[in-house]
C-alpha cells in the first residue's frame, strides 16, 4: 500500500487525461458540441465514488464479522473520499446540465436520485458524529453503511433507467458508448477512470495511515494512564 509505483501511475494517467481530454479528437455532435469532453472528467467521479463506497461497505461488513479498530478506520476513510467524489460529480453534472439541458438542476431522475444517494451518505457521517462511544459508533455506522450502499445502487443504476431521464444511458436514452463513445474516446476515458480511482485510493490511504498512527498514540497514552 505504501509502494510508489501506483502513485506514479496515477499521476501519469491524470496528466494524460488532462492533455488527451482537451486535445484529442472527439465526435462532432449537436447540443453537446465541445462539452462532450466533460465525459472524461464528470463520469470518472461517479466511477470513483462507486469504487470507494464499495471498499467502504467491504470493510464495514468485515468490521461486523470481526470487530476491529482498523476495519472501522478503513471503512470511514473510503466513505469520505467516495463522498468527495460524489459531490464533485454532482457539481460537474450541474455545470454540464446548464449547457446541454438548459438549467443546472433539471429535476431529472438521475440528478434527483444522485442527490438522494449523497444525502443517504451524509446521514452516515451525521450518525458517526452523534455517537460518543467508539465501539458503538463503529458498529452502528458499519450497519448503516450497508444500508446506504444498498440504497445507492438502485438510486443510481435502476430507478433512472425505469423512468424518462435525459441523462445518457438512462430512460431509453443511449449511453455515449452506443453511438459515439468510439475507440477515440475510450482511449482517454478508461485511463481517466483508472487515474481518478487511484487518486482516490491515495488520498484514502493517507487518511488511514494518519488514523492508524493516532490509534497507536491513543493506546500508548492509555497504557501510561493505567
Amino acid at each position: 500500500m505504501k509502494s510508489t509505483w501506483w502513485k506514479i501511475a496515477c499521476v501519469v494517467l491524470l496528466v494524460y487525461t488532462a492533455v488527451g481530454g482537451l486535445l484529442f479528437d472527439v465526435p462532432r455532435l449537436n447540443i453537446v458540441n465541445e462539452t462532450i469532453r466533460a465525459l472524461y472528467f464528470h463520469v470518472p467521479m461517479w466511477f470513483g465514488m462507486v469504487v470507494m463506497f464499495s471498499l467502504s461497505v467491504f470493510y464495514a461488513i468485515r468490521h461486523l464479522r470481526h470487530p476491529s479498530v482498523e476495519s472501522d478506520i478503513f471503512s470511514v476513510a473510503y466513505a469520505y473520499v467516495g463522498l468527495a467524489f460524489g459531490i464533485l460529480g454532482i457539481i460537474t453534472g450541474m455545470i454540464w446540465a446548464n449547457y446541454t439541458w438548459g438549467s443546472p438542476w433539471h429535476g431529472d431522475p438521475k440528478q434527483n436520485a444522485a442527490a438522494i444517494a449523497l444525502l443517504v451518505y451524509f446521514a452516515y457521517f451525521i450518525l458517526r458524529g452523534s455517537v460518543a462511544n467508539d465501539e458503538q459508533r463503529a458498529r452502528l455506522s458499519a450497519a448503516y453503511n450497508i444500508f446506504a450502499f444498498v440504497a445507492m445502487i438502485p438510486l443510481l443504476f435502476i430507478i433512472p433507467r425505469m423512468t424518462s431521464s435525459m441523462h445518457p444511458g438512462n430512460g431509453g436514452n443511449p449511453g455515449f458508448n452506443t453511438y459515439d463513445l468510439d475507440s477515440r474516446m475510450r482511449l482517454v476515458f478508461y485511463p481517466s477512470v483508472i487515474g481518478w480511482i487511484l487518486l482516490g485510493l491515495w488520498i484514502a490511504t493517507l487518511r488511514i495511515r494518519i488514523k492508524l498512527m493516532e490509534e497507536k498514540i491513543n493506546e500508548q497514552e492509555d497504557e501510561k494512564n493505567k
Binding site: V11, L14, V15, A18, V19, L22, L23
Partner: peptide, 11 residues
C-alpha cells in the same frame, strides 16, 4: 494555454 493551466493546477 488551457492545457498548460490545467496541468499546472493538477501537478
Amino acid at each position: 494555454a488551457l492545457v498548460a493551466i490545467i496541468l499546472v493546477i493538477l501537478l
